[in-house]
Design a protein around this nucleic acid. Structure first.
Lengths: 112, 112
DNA sequence: TAAGAACGTGCGTTATAATGAACAAAAGAT
DNA sequence: ATCTTTTGTTCATTATAACGCACGTTCTTA
């Protein structure tokens, strides 16, 4: 279904529904209905708008999930992790700080 | 416009409007309006139907804006970040620990 | 802990996508 | 040449896509 894909890309970009709807110039209430598959037949202009903001090809939203993420790297990351990544990047956490955090945790796990 | 492309593919297949509309299961009156650009915002299900009969990819009918992709640096998932995250997941770092790390860093940045 | 903002959803309304006739013009057949 | 069938169009009607606003909840900020 198309709703799942829209939500997937949206959360991956760390965007809220209000934000996406605002940027795309569509009603957030309708976007909500689309993501929950309460409505499943949007127009091409609607799809173009949100695809434009999400910066993805229109096919990425229309494509049946069969070919979409068979062996896609980003698909390996589950949804919650993607949110965390987006949040991390936006908050200005440096990669170095994160690396330190990683090493510290590895060390901590070893102590058990 | 989309109408020109539909007509182009249809005539190329030697199909009449009545025939295409019939096979696709849509109203020929509406198909007529689409081809003459009296209506320019069909639904994805409509396009899928006729694209299916015409045996063309959906893009072939929408391709007017094929090159609208200029990947956003800030929003897109940074490649190096992805590797770090993958490493984090494999090393068994829990989401909770990562969340705590994020909050701590946000707080730290605020202190300046 | 209270106030305020931002989040997503529910609902009534509007705009328009999509339909099913019936129609005139053109093509094809007898 | 008239009759018949097929073509694409017009028009009134129905279905639903899309909207704006208000509401309850969940984060923030003080």
């Amino acid at each position: 279904m198309i709703g799942a894909r829209v939500r997937q890309f949206r959360t991956a970009r760390g965007l809220t529904m209000s934000e996406l709807a605002d940027r795309a110039g569509v009603a957030k209430s309708y976007l909500s209905a689309i993501e929950r598959d309460l409505q499943t037949n949007p127009s091409i202009q609607f799809i173009e708008k949100i695809a434009n903001v999400l910066d993805v090809d229109i096919n990425a939203l229309l494509k049946d999930e069969a070919a979409t993420n068979s062996s896609d790297e980003t698909a390996a990351l589950d949804e919650e992790w993607q949110k965390l990544i987006a949040e991390a990047m936006e908050s200005g956490v440096s990669k170095e700080e994160f690396k330190d955090f990683l090493e510290y945790n590895k060390w901590k796990l070893k102590q058990k």
